[in-house]
Every structure is written in C-alpha cells, then in structure tokens.
Write a protein that binds this DNA or RNA. Structure first.
Lengths: 246, 246
DNA sequence: GATCGGCCTTGATCCAGATCAACCGCGAAG
DNA sequence: CTTCGCGGTTGATCTGGATCAAGGCCGATC
C-alpha cells in the first residue's frame, strides 16, 4: 500500500508514470490511484470495446497491440489508430466509446475506473498535463496519417507503415540501430490494408514489390528486415529527416 | 485591468472561456491571462505559420477560417484540419510548428504568449482540463476524417464535407434548422480537394453531380442550400444519426 | 470596354488500385 | 494421413478518379 504504484516493473507504461519519479508528486495521489487500478487481459482477436458501449474505465497498454477501428454499415472499415505498449486508451469525460477497439495480439491493459480517474484529473494539474501531452502527440500522429491516407501511393503507404512500426519497435529496444533493423509485423495483411485504406491484395503485391526491389527482406510472412532504413524512408515519400524531430 | 478577460463580447471563443463563469476561478489567473493576450489579423490567403517555424504563441480563432496543411516535397498537399471560430491553434510544450497554417478567409486570432500560457497550464487544472477536452474533441474529429480519407468514394467525401460545414455553421447560428439550411462555402474547390484527398476537377464534377441529383442547390459557386439534410447524410455514407451524438 | 488572372466547369483519355478468381503453405482437428 | 480453414500470393480484368486540355465566368485594372 505504501509502495510506489507506477514504477517500471509494475506498470511501466501508465500515462501518469512520471509521477513515480516526480519530486512534486504527493503520496496520497499515488495511493488514490492504487485503489482504482486493475489489470485486464485479452486474447488475440478478442474485442475490447464496441463503438457505442458504455465505458467505465480508461487504460494504458502494458503489452500487446490493439487496433482502433471504425466501420461503415456496408462493412468498409478503417483503422484509426494502433495502440502499442505505453499508449493511452479511453476518453475521460465521455460515457460511450466512439470507436471499436480490438486486441490484435494477446493484450494486457492497465485500467483505471473512469469516475475516480476524472476526479483525479480535476484535482491534479500534473496528471491532466501529462495526459494533454499524450493526447497532443496522438493528434499529431493522426494528422500525419491523414497525409498518408489522402495523398500517398500504395507503395508509399506500405513503406510509411513499415517505417512507423520499425521506429516504434526499435525505440522500445535500443536507440542505436541506425541501420539493419529487424522486427515482427504485429498485423495481418488485412489489418494493414484497413490501416492504409487499401485492399489486402494491394498490400500483398506492394510488399512483394518492396522485397523484389531489395528494400526489405522477409523471413516467413511476418518477420521483416530493413537493411537500409534511409532507403525505406525514401520509398515512403517522407522528408529524409522525418520533418520535425523535436 | 479588473474586468473579466474572457467574457463573450471580448473574445467569446477562448479555450479557457468557461473560467469567466466558473465559480472556482480566481481573479489573479484572469488578470494574468490578460497580460499575455493580444489580437492578430490576417488577410485571406496569408500564411500564419510555416511548418518548422519557431512559435511563441498559442491562439484561438475569433473570426474567419484557417487551414492546417501538410505538403510533400513534390507538392502534394493534404489539409489536416480546418480551424473555424472557437478552435484552438498551437501546441503548448513544443517550440516549432509541425504544420503550415494559412488564413483561408480574413482571419482574427486571439493569441497568448506561449511561455506564460504554459506556466498557467502547469498551475491551473481548470485550464489544462479544458484544453484536454478540446484536444480530445479534435482527435476524435481527426479520426472521423481518417475514415473519410481512407474508405469513402469521391461523392461520399464531398457530401461528408458539406455536412460537416453545414452542421458547424448552423450550430453557430441556431439549433433548430433541421431542414433547408443555407450556408456559404468557406473553401475554394482546390482547398476542398486538399481536404478530401481529391483533385479539384473531381470536386467540381461531384458537386455538379449532387446538384443535378437535387441533393443541393447552388447560388453562385459558394452559396449552398441543402433542401433535405437527411438526403445529404445518406449520400455521405454515414449512419443516419451520425453515430454517437453525446 | 478591353484585357487579365482567379476560380470554376466540362470533356477525353489514362492508369493505379479495386475486384474477381485461383491457388499455395501450413498448422490444427479428426 | 487427410481434411479444413486461415492467411497469404499471384494473375486477369475492370473502373473511379487522376491527368491533360480547352473554355467559361467574373471582378479588377488600365
């Protein structure tokens, strides 16, 4: 009960994690958070919430991958966000979910009961500030993605997605690997298509094309190796430096 | 100096506007905000900030329309957001702009110097909470738009855009006009194309098609009348009720 | 009132990606 | 070992929207 709640062993990815090391944190808030926290796991493929559901929690991803999607009546679906470990899920202040959330791999969430979490937000500027920061990051990412969806070719879309995944994966491991990184694709071809606004056939063809061109190497269907990262970036149509590294 | 800073006559659209009527507000914060606030106007077509610029302010739109856009080296551009009166512009915590901002019509901003604004954010949960709320709304809007960009046909895209503008315009005027609303398009065909991920020719053709089909009526190139709003929504491919009205 | 430059429309043609369809590889279930 | 089903690949064809091109409308300028 007196142990720090958000140390990295326990749940390294909570939005409020900096509080555990923040000199300004007050113990009573940590204890409060402890009382409203619980863990939840989902198997690959399981739905987490449906659009329109009443939601009584917010959460962060501890491990695994989740997809945020939107579906039209006729079945066309668009993935709207990919939640990797450390991403935040939920919408303080709203009763109902706006989007579907599905576990794409086995998934563990660190959940907070919504009402008490909102109470904490209202009273603690540190927490709402941290959440604001994360939300602004997500907004930037969503806007970057709008350029991908609206203006890029199929090949550029694939390259952009691979670059994003590679960057996120390798940042979680080591900063150094400038060249020659290898990672596991957490998505099926169909999920990639839903993310990119393409069909799965086009995704498959373009991945084959990138392989043929030597931009990537595949072991099996999922394990990707990028021998020359700059080459991949060039294929993605992005500015070499990624534009605006802060 | 003692007058409330954020009453509706003065600047009805500031992100912190609820503080003016919030019982919990403290006068010294209002006075503080007063000292960091200034107004700025732009003519239609003028750039407000370029991507990469050092930015020392955040702002809200008082009147007019601004566009957030992103451009690739080869000139392809995607509009990423449309800022109408009451929308927030800027990124507390970041030195540099990630996107271009352009005045699309004559534009007035209510600006706050960034550093002091950030200081206020850090000390006042009300302000950061209000901003968080606005950012979450923007994120939802961006995600809705990803479905439009990724999965809708040209015709559905146009109908979606018209529906959004109609809703925002008429909400600013009167809630009632369920049917038969008329509004002025704040965008050129080219700007619409940039927003929708289309070419201006396709925009023009689809608007003509909607006109021919009787879904809309035009007076001149810009003034649009929607005789039957439900019809427009049907064309947009959205669920009749818009999904998830809070 | 002639000319010019934005903004918009319309037509003809082209092509990237969708659609339809066949098939492969592989692990799980019988 | 066979079968089944899921995820993936590849080929053939179709098509919605891009591209290229020619004007039209209208307000501003000389």
């Amino acid at each position: 009960m007196n142990a720090p709640v958000f140390d990295n062993r326990d749940c390294g990815t909570c939005p409020i994690r900096h509080r555990a090391v923040c000199a300004r944190c007050e113990q009573d808030e940590l204890e409060y958070l402890d009382t409203i926290k619980y863990y939840r796991s989902y198997e690959a493929g399981q739905p987490v919430v449906w659009s329109g559901d009443q939601i009584d929690f917010v959460a962060t991803v501890v491990s695994g991958v989740a997809a945020l999607t939107q579906t039209m009546e006729d079945g066309r679906t668009q993935m709207i966000g990919l939640l990797l470990p450390s991403d935040f899920l939920g919408r303080p202040g709203h009763e109902k979910a706006h989007f579907d959330v599905t576990a794409i791999s086995d998934l563990t969430l660190c959940c907070f009961r919504r009402r008490p979490f909102e109470k904490l937000l209202a009273s603690s500027p540190h927490v709402s500030q941290r959440l604001l920061e994360m939300t602004l990051d997500e907004l930037d990412a969503a806007r970057e993605w709008m350029l991908v969806l609206g203006r890029k070719t199929a090949r550029e879309k694939i390259a952009s997605l691979l670059a994003i995944i590679a960057r996120r994966e390798s940042r979680l491991r080591l900063e150094d690997s400038t060249d020659g990184c290898t990672f596991e694709l957490p998505l099926t071809r169909e999920a990639m298509a839903d993310y990119l606004g393409l069909t799965l056939e086009t995704v498959s063809r373009q991945i084959s094309a990138l392989k043929r061109a030597g931009v990537i190497t595949l072991r099996g269907n999922r394990q990707v190796t990028v021998p020359d990262f700059a080459r991949l970036i060039a294929e993605s149509g992005d500015d070499a430096d990624g534009g605006m590294l802060p």
